[in-house]
Structure formats: C-alpha cells, structure tokens
Design a protein around this nucleic acid. Sequence first.
DNA 1: CTGTATCCCCGTGGATACTG
DNA 2: CAGTATCCACGGGGATACAG
Lengths: 116, 116
Amino acid sequence: MVLRMRTKVNALPGCPMSMCMDLLGGLWTPELIWSLSDGPRRFSELRRDIPAISAKVLTSRLRDLEARGVLGRSVLPTSPPTVEYELTSLGRELLPAIRSIVEVGSRLLLRDRPAG
Amino acid sequence: MVLRMRTKVNALPGCPMSMCMDLLGGLWTPELIWSLSDGPRRFSELRRDIPAISAKVLTSRLRDLEARGVLGRSVLPTSPPTVEYELTSLGRELLPAIRSIVEVGSRLLLRDRPAG
DNA sequence: CTGTATCCCCGTGGATACTG
DNA sequence: CAGTATCCACGGGGATACAG
C-alpha cells in the first residue's frame, strides 16, 4: 500500500533552485513542512499525518531541518515529555513553493480525471 | 566541484503533491525541465546546460519524462542524427511550480547574503 | 511519548567502453 | 552526434530492538 518511490533531486550549489530544493529534497520533506504549515505539531502527530514515514526517517528529517533553521523544536516540561515542532520564518518562506507544487498537482489530477 | 547531493522525495500516491513531485523528483529533473522551458534543445545542448549530469542519467531522465508525457522527442533526418527534445503541454504545466521554487530560492539567497 | 542504535538491502548514479 | 551496456560503489531507508 505504501508507495516506495525513491527519487533524487540535485542542483548546482549556490543557485536559486538548489537553495530551495536542498531544503525540500529529502524523503517526505515537502509533506513534513506542509503538515507544519498549520501550526506546531508533536512527533506522534506528525507520524499520524504521514503514516508511511518511519520513526528513523522522521527523526532524521526533523533534526536536519532544525539544523538548517527550517523548523524549531521545543520540549515542554511535562511527563511524559512533549515535544513540539514548528516552522521558523525561514520554513514559512518555503510554503509558496510547496503551495505551487500542490496547485500544479491538483491541475494534473483534473487533467487525468476530468470527469472523475 | 560537483555537488553530489542525493535526496529523495516521496508522497502518498494519488494526492496532488505526489502528482507533481513524481514528475519533478528525479535527479536533475527540475533543471532539465527548466532548460527546456525556453524551447527545444538537443541532447548535447542539455549536457552543456547541466555539465554535472552524466549521459546515462540524462538519457534515463529523457526516456522517463517522455514516457510520462512531459516532453517529446523528435529525430531530424540529418547526418549525423539530430535529436530535439521539447516540453509538451503537460510539461509546460510544471513550469509554475519550478518557477516558484526558483523564486523562493532567490529570496533565500538574498536572505543569506543581504549585502551580496 | 520521543526518540536512538544496529544491521542489511537494493535502488540509483558514476565511470568506462562501445555503437549506429 | 546520440546514445547503450556493464560493472561497481555508495548511502539512504526499512525493520527491529532498545532507552530516557
């Protein structure tokens, strides 16, 4: 049921396209950022948003995007621990690109199934 | 000198995002489509546009995108053979997403180097 | 709940040599 | 010019088990 498509994107370093694709290019990265666009979300919520993602990859993406300044991580002093992730202003700058991708995809869906 | 960044993108099948990312997600795919946005280009021109791409991968992308209806291939009856690739209407529908990616990337570049 | 550590698979791309 | 064929290495991701 899970589509295991593997793709890779690349771009010349220092050019506009790679600036953006370097941030969006990881497995599940666009979905992850998209899930955070509505506001802060917790680890387990993200897993539910994207059921096909493994804990390992989710952690990996989260750490990576945090290191790149795309999202912030805050640990709430509860028991058991609660961790919230939310987009930074840098992360929010990526949303127009993702939105455009979704829009184009929607148009392609209509194209494929004009009557469906 | 060549950046060998490897990334993978994924998306749930049948959703708008994957409709678009399935088409953009391959290594060098956005650059390739972007190179074709100005008009038809030949194999060797594409290699010059994207020096870091290998012939194998370029061929692979070209065949794949042709099969998906993103671009068309025409062999001109010259000697030696001339082959031209150009975006189809489907391929042109992807351009807004790529343009948005480039715009966001440009903004990120300015953000990183506000003074140049 | 929020992760980390380990092992292993295998897809994907590079290099090289060759072809019509 | 425009590819194809072959071999190989790499490294990312899945599964599983474990931890604070």
